[in-house]
Design a protein around this nucleic acid. Structure first.
Length: 580
DNA sequence: TATACGCGCGCG
DNA sequence: AAAGCGCGCGCGTATA
């Protein structure tokens, strides 16, 4: 083993005296070289190694290290996020020996959102001891090397190392992508957003005043209820006023109100919609979150137990469809939007190797395929039934359709029914690539045990059964939602690498607001569970669309080699995102 | 005055 | 018709 061997990994961490340490490892984890450098030189040193050997970069957590590199104009193609991977491995059923990982409690820290959303102007790489936040993961190089060795041992000794390695790579790629999405931002048309607000609410009022059209709606509600002083924003008072008008709802929720025919209902529903728009995405939101034509949400990979991403600040994953037209490509650029048709049922069909379900989905619309197979009469019934199968629905339309699906798709239904049964018993279930559901809380297990005693009251038994069913629905959905998240991460990861190979466009065609790394080529701009938006120079839009399709095919083959299940996309190239 | 919690609704 | 899974956020209300 010689020192000029090509490194497979490069571990980055805090060294001595405020310097950064880089340690290159060979494929077996043996140290090849190590250097300590001043923090200002880190971006250059990373860029040099990336272009020479493109190692997999290992660091404590991606927001801490990578956001600064991206800002400095440096990207890397592959990473290993010790914090994200630690959380997966310490719970994974695939890991045979997790004791050492579980004892490394420092690595079980939640993401530090302050750091992720760091403000501009903060000095680069102030990673000395004084800036380490209590409760965060360790950033020192020796801690990183030790944890990395633990993680490699856990993966190598797993029941299915190759699947777990796919998950580790996909999760880490997600970390890189989240940082890049934040840096690039979503191209946002403030004028269009303002126009949509004005259309619904009236022109922007002066601070502290309600918009005119909301005042109007509220007045109509008060008039119809005969209560001139009523405050619509207080659910208890509104409920009492509705009862006085003989509208016998149990809550003030929208779905319940729509069932009543009364002159107050229409303006009340309108008021609620206006109120929601104003509070969640009104002018204050615009002022706070959109700057220089970009909305830059903070994405939180692994933020959901199932492996889905969460977000923090601005409600990035809940942008109302109504505001979609405010997403607008820069001049000379396009938005390439793609979403997967029925991702979760297709993932279920592939996991369970249910050939009947694969056949129903072959081509385009899975729900229509179920109708065509003569199982249900309408697409809507098919959809409600499939969602009921995934979520554990027992009542209403879904409860009626699920038994038919159980006969038609026995393998798919056996998989989710089995996951539900395991959850009801207090067991753990896992996704296709090995992310496992959390164990039940001690109080849950205690309550189940207690309810089994002969002297347990019927109320106690009923509560225990209900909570067992609740947990069963969670584990039922966990395996599908979690595997769909793995598919989506694989899709994104493949797409990102493909876009990274696009030729830069001429400087005069650049989109400077996207930042130095992304301004001159097609790049990811938005991700939402089963949907991506790529911001692309007009003459790269078609190629980007093809890359999105190719990445979806690649994700399917990677996770489910040989499976007949396909993952068709709805794909559009536009200047402005359609309201749909 | 600050914090915790439930409601309602936006997204998949 | 409005359920069955996973979230984040703003609001009003209750509690300290």
């Amino acid at each position: 083993m010689t020192s000029d061997e090509r490194p497979a990994w490069c571990v980055v961490g805090r060294g001595t005296g405020g310097r950064c340490a880089l340690v290159e490892l060979d494929a077996l984890g043996a140290r090849l070289r190590e250097v300590e450098i001043e923090p200002e030189r880190l971006a250059d040193e990373v860029a040099r190694r990336e272009s020479a050997v493109s190692p997999r970069w290992v660091w404590s957590d991606t927001p801490t290290w990578y956001a600064r590199l991206v800002d400095a104009g440096v990207t890397v193609s592959r990473g290993h996020d010790l914090r994200l991977i630690h959380v997966i491995l310490r719970h994974s059923e695939m890991v045979r020996e997790a004791r050492a990982l579980r004892e490394a409690v420092d690595w079980d820290a939640p993401i530090d959102l302050q750091l992720e959303d760091r403000s501009a102007g903060e000095t680069l790489f102030e990673l000395d001891a004084s800036s380490a936040r209590p409760g965060g993961v360790p950033h020192g190089i020796e801690e990183a090397l030790t944890e990395f060795a633990r993680q490699r041992a856990a993966i190598d000794g797993a029941t299915d190392p190759s699947r777990l390695r796919l998950l580790v790579a996909a999760e880490s790629a997600g970390g890189l992508i989240a940082a890049e999405l934040h840096a690039a931002g979503i191209p946002w048309d403030v004028a269009e957003h303002d126009r949509i607000l004005a259309e619904s609410l009236g022109p922007r009022p002066s601070p502290g005043h309600p918009p005119a059209r909301m005042v109007e709606s509220a007045a109509q509600v008060r008039e119809a209820l005969g209560d001139p002083q009523l405050s619509l924003d207080s659910p208890p008072r509104l409920l009492r006023a509705l009862h006085r008008a003989e509208i016998d709802v149990e809550s003030t929720s929208k779905w319940e109100l729509t069932r009543y025919d009364h002159p107050a209902i229409e303006p009340l529903l309108r008021y609620k919609k206006q109120s929601r728009l104003l509070a969640a995405n009104g002018w204050a939101w615009l002022d706070e979150w959109v700057h220089e034509g970009r909305y830059r949400p903070v994405y939180v990979p692994g933020g959901v137990v199932t492996g889905r991403w969460a977000s923090s600040g601005g409600g990035a994953l809940q942008i109302p469809r109504q505001l979609r037209p405010a997403l607008r490509a820069d001049e000379g650029w396009r938005l390439v939007s793609a979403d997967v048709a029925q991702l979760e049922p297709r993932v279920l069909a592939a996991m369970s190797a249910d050939t009947a379900m694969a056949t129903a989905g072959a081509g385009k619309d899975l729900y229509s395929g179920i109708v065509d197979a003569g199982i249900v009469a309408s697409r809507q019934e098919a959809k409600v039934g499939v969602l009921g199968a995934l979520y554990g629905g027992t009542t209403g339309d879904s409860g009626r359709v699920v038994p038919r699906l159980r006969r038609t798709f026995p393998d798919a239904m056996a998989l989710v029914d089995g996951a539900a049964a395991t959850g009801e018993r207090g067991g753990t279930v896992s996704t296709w690539l090995g992310r496992s559901s959390p164990a039940p809380e001690a109080a849950w297990t205690q309550a189940q045990t207690s309810a089994y005693r002969p002297e347990a009251s019927s109320g106690e038994q009923e509560r225990a059964r209900r909570s067992a069913r609740d947990r069963g629905r969670f584990t039922r959905n966990f395996v599908v939602q979690g595997t769909a998240a793995e598919w989506a991460l694989s899709w994104l990861a493949a797409l990102r690498l493909a876009l990274g190979r696009f030729e830069p466009v001429a400087p005069e065609a650049a989109a400077p607001a996207s930042g130095p790394v992304f301004a001159r080529r097609a790049h990811l701009a938005f991700f939402l569970h089963d949907e991506v938006i790529v911001h692309a120079p007009a003459d790269q839009a078609e190629a980007a669309a093809e890359a999105i399709r190719a990445a979806a095919d690649a994700a399917g083959r990677l996770l489910f080699p040989g499976s007949p299940v396909d993952f068709p996309l709805d794909l559009t190239i536009t200047e402005r995102s359609p309201a749909s």
